[in-house]
Design a protein around this nucleic acid. Structure first.
Length: 576
RNA sequence: GCGCCCGUAGCUCAGUUGGACAGAGCACGAGCCUUCUAAGCUUGGGGUCGCAGGUUCGAAUCCUGCCGGGCGCGCCA
């Protein structure tokens, strides 16, 4: 299915070919910059092309003169009502109403596939998101990345990419050892021993109690007084597995599901790190050297050390990065490099959705990927902090005391759909406030409500129509729709374009903003019926008009559903 | 000191990846409605797009330099 814009891009190309054939235009001009877009100002028509302005210089003429040649060609098309030259050389195209009637029908016919695109070309994209340390339940700090990553993955699928949704499990670092020790304490507790207060540095949360109980049931007294070296490994494995179950459950509540959970430990134990470093080494990007002392920090306890380094500066990083610690083990970065090489085996492009606290590691990781893949193949989306507010007051969270707000609590309080939509009402790199009161507010300034309300109105309309015995199988005369109603179709027809733009920019929030615009346009039309009953969607004494308007409403509802589906939000059948 | 991100209306933010006079919501001004097409409607004012240069037919958008804010900056993950 080609979009309206793609069709007209082809029409413009045909017109240029024709001119070249007639000798009026130099052949072989680079048309890369030629665009067909909806003008911002609706008074400029339905479509505009910059072809004349972009090509005039190379064609050895001026924009308006060239436009004067192109416009008549476009005007001969049956879909075109007029093609006018405007401003510096734009060609403004007005389309026949029939184009919009057809588009409306196309929406209804395509249904849940409306806006689906093939721009991905089946390219394989790996989207890695969440990847929270498996040391406890999900808290709100993880939420935004989870939603942005998941919506981005859905968006890319819808745009024709093959997507792998992946979670990197950091099960190899010091933190999971702390987890194992915390679990051991709970294990002792489950055996009936006095453990007192949880010592500083261990995880205090109650969620480890069931883990301790399970360990007690499995091992009895066997590891109660054993040295750590005997139980650390088995306890860690079981605790991590239990935490992953917890996390998976939390994510499921949010409607997030990953295809793959990749283990850092397995990456390390499989020898993948050696292989990755060998690849870099073969390219002359690995050497032993000493890093300069850290800038902007006290250098008192700084001692120069010879380390194995990756030449990430060759790819724009600020300094080269250590890949082997002085104790001989791999750094996190080395393992991460191996992990990205692993992802590259199954994917053409990589996207990581990270918290903003990882800002400093973006360049080195991109450098490693570029070195391995031979081209820049990693995009990193950094999601900024979300401040939790309750009626305008900041909700304080302290990791140390374990008093963080969990994802599950928030989902339970306001619902998954509200959480997901709200997380997409801001660009990923902009800071965001999440106010428990505001996100559930039933008012125009709450985009979640506003979009859902529009969809609910469409549904209630069709329920009423059915109750009134409107024959929805009867033929429809869309010619009965007036200019304002067609204007709404035009907004709906933007959707495929929005999908493609959002997919290419890796920006799922654009879907949310678009749906807000579409809902706004629909509500405005709806409100006309408040003071003029003849302009309502259901006009009792005019079945034909009602039929046409019902089709219009159905199309709007359809687009909203598709958009919401990409965001992972269920469309409301009714409010309350 | 260096790097990254950001700076758009009084506030919170969009801005289709360079397009035609810069947009929305809130707040403010003026009308209207008291309603299940309910959880308001219509309409108006308001911006040197941080500043200064540059590239371009054309810049909020790209480049350079400043100003201001945030984050990061040895072998932690």
């Amino acid at each position: 299915m080609s979009t309206l814009y793609a069709r007209f891009a082809a029409h413009v190309a045909d017109a240029l070919d024709a001119l070249a054939g007639e000798g009026q235009l130099a052949p072989g001009l680079d048309r890369g910059a030629v665009a067909v877009e909806p003008p911002r100002d609706p008074s400029h028509g339905d479509l505009a092309t910059n072809a004349a302005m972009v090509l005039a210089k190379r064609a050895g003429t001026n924009p308006r003169a060239l436009a004067g040649l192109i416009a008549p060609k476009l005007e001969t098309l049956p879909e075109v009502a007029s093609a006018e030259i405007a401003g510096p050389g734009f060609i403004n195209i007005r389309l026949e109403p029939g184009v919009w009637h057809d588009e409306l029908l196309a929406i209804l016919e395509a249904g849940d596939s409306y806006g689906r695109s093939a721009i991905g070309g089946g390219q394989r994209v790996n989207v890695e998101y969440v990847s929270a340390n498996p040391t406890g339940p999900m808290h709100m700090g993880h939420c935004r990345g989870a939603v942005v990553g998941d919506a981005l993955a859905s968006l890319l699928e819808f745009a024709g990419f093959q997507v792998i949704r992946e979670y990197y499990v950091n099960d190899a670092g010091a933190q999971v050892d702390v987890l194992a020790r915390s679990a051991h304490l709970r294990y002792l507790e489950a055996l009936g021993r006095q453990i007192g207060a949880i010592p500083e540095g261990l995880y205090p949360g109650d969620y480890l109690k069931p883990v301790g109980a399970a360990l007690a049931a499995e091992f009895g007294e066997r590891f109660a007084d054993a040295p750590e070296s005997e139980w650390l490994d088995p306890f860690r494995r079981r605790a991590v597995a239990a935490m992953l179950d917890l996390i998976r459950r939390d994510l499921a509540e949010l409607g997030v599901h990953h295809d793959l959970f990749a283990s850092e430990r397995e990456v390390q134990e499989s020898g993948a790190v050696d292989r990755a470093i060998a690849v870099l080494d073969a390219k002359g990007l690995v050497y032993t050297g000493t890093l300069p002392p850290p800038k902007g920090k006290s250098t008192e306890d700084w001692e120069p050390t010879e380390l194995l380094l990756f030449r990430s500066t060759a790819f724009g990083d600020d300094q080269d990065r250590p890949i082997r610690k002085s104790d001989g083990s791999w750094t996190y970065f080395a393992a991460d490099t191996a992990y990205h090489m692993q992802k590259l085996q199954a994917s053409d492009e990589l996207i990581n959705v990270w918290g903003a606290d990882h800002t400093g590691t973006v360049k080195r990781t991109q450098a490693a990927v570029e070195a391995l893949a031979g081209r820049p193949a990693l995009d990193v989306k950094l999601v900024q902090m979300v401040r939790l507010l309750r009626n305008g007051e900041l909700v304080k969270m302290s990791k140390r005391s374990g008093s963080f707000v969990t994802l599950a609590e928030v989902v339970e309080e306001v619902g998954k759909d509200v959480v997901r939509f709200t997380m997409l009402t801001r660009k990923n790199d902009a800071q965001m406030d999440f106010d428990f009161a505001k996100v559930v507010e039933a008012s125009k300034d709450n985009p979640v409500f506003y979009v859902q309300y529009a969809h609910a109105r469409v549904r209630s309309l069709h329920r009423k129509a059915a109750a009134a015995g409107i024959d929805t199988a009867a033929p429809v005369d869309l010619g009965l729709l007036d200019a304002e109603e067609l204007a709404l179709v035009k907004v709906a027809a933007q959707f495929p374009r929005v999908v493609e733009g959002a997919a290419q920019a890796h920006e799922p929030h654009r879907i949310a903003f678009y749906l807000g615009d579409l809902a706004g346009a629909f509500h405005a039309l709806w409100n006309r019926g408040n003071d003029d009953p003849s302009r309502r969607f259901l006009v009792e004494d005019n079945q034909a008009l009602t039929r046409a308007r019902l089709e219009l409403a159905a199309a709007i509802g359809q687009v909203i559903r598709v958009g919401l589906r990409i965001m992972g939000v269920a469309a409301a059948e009714e409010m309350q």
